[in-house]
Design a protein around this nucleic acid. Structure first.
Length: 534
DNA sequence: ATAGGGTTAG
């Protein structure tokens, strides 16, 4: 009696915790939910641990230790938990173990848990993402011999995608042909592969045969024609699609819009826009950008601009399209203005930043750069997000320092706000005097160089403590007049310090050379060799 | 869980 009651209670608790985990809005809350499991012994549950891993991946947990910690609490991991671990590692990437490594560990567990269909699909997906055809085809064999999944729709569809991604269309077709049951996804995957290969003939053939034509399949045909330079056929298919009573969404409109752009057909363009309005679509960036292009190419540059202005989300494509549109209509000065609006480094900086992280995900400089750009635009939320990301990856900023060689060959190093130098008092006094002289000559501190969200006066104070300024003051005190003051800095010199160096080189009549991590700055008579670009 | 998306230059 009491045993069944206890069992029932723990079951209720389990489902309660399950929903707490799956709805946790942030990593913090997820960790709190996780902590609740321990006193109840539920951290040993395969079911809850799998859910935890899934949520960790969805929230983009920045650390692999969380993932492994959750997994290793479970004494007898089952197929579901192993698969959740594989999926989470694949989603989170490098700091986590490679999915294939985890799979081989899974195969070695005693007794080995039988792989599930979505174990294979996770693995195959990671192969197709990295285009590793060799690994992928080995797994293909295992899906049959180990998993017995040669009739599993899901696995077969993932295999089609694997071969398509690896450019092996004939192998993809072979998988497709041998399938006993196919769904819309199997058909569409191949149709798209053909259209991307420029083989509209094969695409048409398959599309004609397909008994399961849904919105996505129709859309694939419309964009296929459009992207292969056959805009009239694209619009014909689009019309047929509407006649067939298929629903329309933003993506399906893009192909039609781009076809109108290619044709320069004003009336068709108007028709497509009415459809967009009818369905309340068009708030989407891609569709909006396509519409800007459509209007520009149909000669309606003002309408293009109207769409552009009305968009609440714009990216590089949107700007480029609008700019070239303006240029094509002879509105050169508008085009230049818009270009300048675009590069003036936070909206676009965000995009550029994302690209940078794709190329060099762990380069510390990228984090610092992005954080500083957001800071100078006053986007403090984004700044703290970047900081969190850095912390999560265990990246720490090297403290900025400047150093210079004194007359006797000793090297003196300065950190920001640093008072540890034996001559600190003289240095600070010399710096104060220098700043006063520069201010009387019109120097205004560039508060925007301070990337913290603090008061103006605090910014002034922080600026004064920059290590290269301390080094400069030390140089003015110790280097013979006429001698060059040579400073080395481990990170990029800030704008305010750069300005101070320029001004000081003329007011103090000194040559100053600063080497930062990127280049040399030769300051002489108020100008710098870098010409303001660094 | 797996399928569809926009610009330009040469």
């Amino acid at each position: 009696m009491s045993a069944t009651l206890r069992h029932r209670r723990s079951h209720e608790l389990e489902s309660l915790l399950f929903s707490a985990i799956s709805s946790a809005p942030s990593l913090f809350q997820l960790k709190q939910a996780h902590a609740l499991l321990y006193p109840l012994g539920l951290h040993r549950s395969n079911y809850l641990a799998s859910k935890l891993l899934r949520r960790l991946a969805e929230l983009g947990s920045p650390s692999n230790t969380c993932v492994l910690a959750v997994f290793s609490q479970v004494p007898a991991p089952n197929s579901f938990l192993w698969t959740a671990l594989i999926r989470a590692s694949a989603a989170l990437g490098p700091p986590c173990p490679h999915p294939l490594l985890l799979y081989s560990l899974m195969r070695r567990a005693l007794p080995p848990p039988p792989p599930l269909s979505f174990t294979f699909s996770a693995l195959l997906k990671s192969c197709s993402a990295s285009r590793s055809i060799a690994m992928g085809s080995q797994l293909h064999a295992q899906t049959i011999f180990i998993g017995g999944f040669n009739e599993d729709l899901f696995v077969q569809n993932t295999l089609i995608d694997l071969y398509v991604q690896c450019g092996q269309l004939d192998l993809a077709r072979k998988v497709f042909d041998e399938m006993l049951v196919r769904d819309a996804i199997s058909w569409t995957s191949l149709i798209v592969a053909y259209t991307r290969n420029g083989d509209m003939g094969s695409a048409e053939e398959l599309f004609g045969e397909s008994p399961v034509k849904d919105m996505i399949a129709w859309t694939a045909m419309v964009t296929g024609y459009s992207q292969n330079g056959r805009p009239r056929e694209a619009l014909m298919v689009f019309d047929k699609m509407r006649e067939a009573g298929v629903a329309i969404d933003e993506v399906s409109l893009v192909g039609a819009v781009s076809a109108c752009a290619q044709l320069g057909a004003v009336k068709r363009a108007e028709g497509v826009r009415q459809i967009a309005e009818l369905y309340g679509l068009g708030r989407n960036v891609v569709l909006g950008s396509a519409m800007v292009d459509m209007y520009a190419k149909c000669g309606l540059i003002d309408e293009a601009r109207q769409v552009f202005n009305g968009m609440d989300d714009r990216n590089v494509y949107t700007y480029s399209t609008m700019i070239t549109g303006l240029a094509a209509h002879g509105k050169a000065s508008d085009a230049v203005d818009l270009f300048e609006e675009m590069v003036a480094e936070p909206h676009i900086a965000k995009i550029a930043g994302e690209k940078l992280f794709e190329l060099e995900p762990d380069a510390i400089g990228n984090f610092v750069l992005l954080s500083n750009i957001f800071a100078s635009a006053g986007m403090w939320n984004e700044v703290s997000n970047v900081r969190k990301l850095m912390r999560g990856r265990g990246l720490r900023k090297n403290p900025a320092s400047s150093w210079m060689e004194a007359r006797d060959g000793t090297v003196h190093e300065f950190f920001a706000g640093d008072g540890s130098h034996p001559m600190s008092r003289e240095i600070k006094a010399a710096l104060e005097e220098l700043m006063d002289r520069l201010k009387s000559r019109g120097y205004v501190p560039m508060l925007s160089s301070i990337v913290y969200d603090v008061s103006e006066s605090e910014k002034q104070r922080l600026l004064k403590g920059h290590c290269e300024k301390l080094a400069l003051a030390f140089g003015l005190l110790t280097v013979d007049s006429g001698g060059i003051i040579r400073i080395v800095k481990n990170v990029r010199i800030c704008e305010d310090c750069h300005l101070v160096m320029c001004l000081a080189s003329s007011s103090e009549n000194r040559e100053i050379v600063v080497r930062d991590n990127m280049r040399f700055h030769h300051f002489k008579d108020g100008v710098c060799s870098c010409g303001g670009f660094w």
